[in-house]
C-alpha cells in the first residue's frame, strides 16, 4: 500500500497540470464561442471553387 504515497501526490500533480492547461485554454479564447467551431469543420472549403475555375477559363480564351 506504500504505493499510495507515490500515486496520490502524482494524482494531485496531474490535476494541477489539468487546471493549468484549462486556464491556458480559457485565456486563449477556446471557450469564447462554442457554437461556430462545430460548423467550421462541416463547412470547410473542400470543394473546388467555381469562381476560380471561371477566371481561369476566361484567361485561356484569348
Amino acid at each position: 500500500m506504500e504505493i499510495l504515497f507515490f500515486m496520490i501526490p502524482l494524482g494531485v500533480v496531474l490535476v494541477a497540470f489539468a487546471i493549468w492547461a484549462f486556464f491556458w485554454a480559457v485565456g486563449n479564447g477556446q471557450f469564447d464561442d462554442l457554437d461556430t467551431p462545430a460548423y467550421q469543420i462541416l463547412l470547410d472549403d473542400d470543394q473546388p471553387q467555381p469562381q476560380k475555375k471561371a477566371n481561369e477559363e476566361r484567361k485561356e480564351e484569348p
Binding site: Y39, Q49, P50, Q51, A54
Partner: peptide, 12 residues
Amino acid sequence: IAGSGLENFYRY
C-alpha cells in the same frame, strides 16, 4: 455565395 464556392452556407 454560390460563385465563391460557399454554398455550404445554405446547407448549414
